[in-house]
Design a protein around this nucleic acid. Sequence first.
DNA 1: TTCAGTGCAAAAACTTTGCAGGAGG
DNA 2: CCTCCTGCAAAGTTTTTGCACTGAA
Lengths: 155, 155
Amino acid sequence: MKKENLKYPKAHEQFTKYLKREKHRITPERFEVLEYALDYDGHFGADELYIEMKNFKSNVSRATVYNTLELLANCDLLAKRHFGENKTRYESSFNRKNHDHLICVNCGKIKEFSTPKMDKIIEEVSKEMGFESSGYSFNIFGRCTNKECGNYSDE
Amino acid sequence: MKKENLKYPKAHEQFTKYLKREKHRITPERFEVLEYALDYDGHFGADELYIEMKNFKSNVSRATVYNTLELLANCDLLAKRHFGENKTRYESSFNRKNHDHLICVNCGKIKEFSTPKMDKIIEEVSKEMGFESSGYSFNIFGRCTNKECGNYSDE
DNA sequence: TTCAGTGCAAAAACTTTGCAGGAGG
DNA sequence: CCTCCTGCAAAGTTTTTGCACTGAA
């Protein structure tokens, strides 16, 4: 069941431009992955998205999902994340501002935050170390201090 | 070939204390992993260390290496790292000060840096978000700007 | 027409688990 | 003596690869 009407025309356009520029072919499967990825609420792993798509009767293969997520990350429609597990997670970065993460090691919840100070630090460090930065990851691990945190589920 | 003379008596002591406190048994295998881990130059994965130990005719099993590295991380003799690959890396944090990492996406090299500003940011964010922080990871990705960077090897 | 992209399944890379036997406390 | 720990191998998880076929340009 392919989706007929595009929910994210701007994202489609951006992806199309990228694919042309990098001389990748424009295929319906790639746009199908795009739609599901942007629809996904929160962070997801490649295999999770694949399963989700299978549940909705999509025929896109696992290999294509992995391949396409990589492309979507390359053109900044998705952001790659690593939260200390041995798997790559993605999240939509389409029309969202940059942010970093607080990860509760007790309940597993992930909160977002952002601070303008990071940019300055990265700039300073890069200059000092002879480095041209293209991205970063900043995760704080710890525990929520609110009451409802307590029932750990490892996701 | 077990190592007969201990290269890291202080670390042994610290590990022993931890094992007793947490009611884990004190076994020669665990100390053997400790020695190899602290001897390792730079960051390493669990399996890498296992192979290294095998090469030196150690009989310690894979499961024990994985288990022991986890224990060593828990008592702060090692630090766990995730550099955007889907594997856990460790590095000695015994007698070393905290530091963050610059990762060259071109040549794979990892440089270390540290800045006192991170502590302040973490404190501020934690207070603001209702969070009790116990650790963090901060990696900057980009490219070295020096000449010898150019031959990418994915390690 | 051509070759990159696809689907599928098999393999790879890393980690965890089950089990039986052995040693630490 | 009672478990916890160990070694081994098997299984689990996530990602990548090989191959034959298809469809975008």
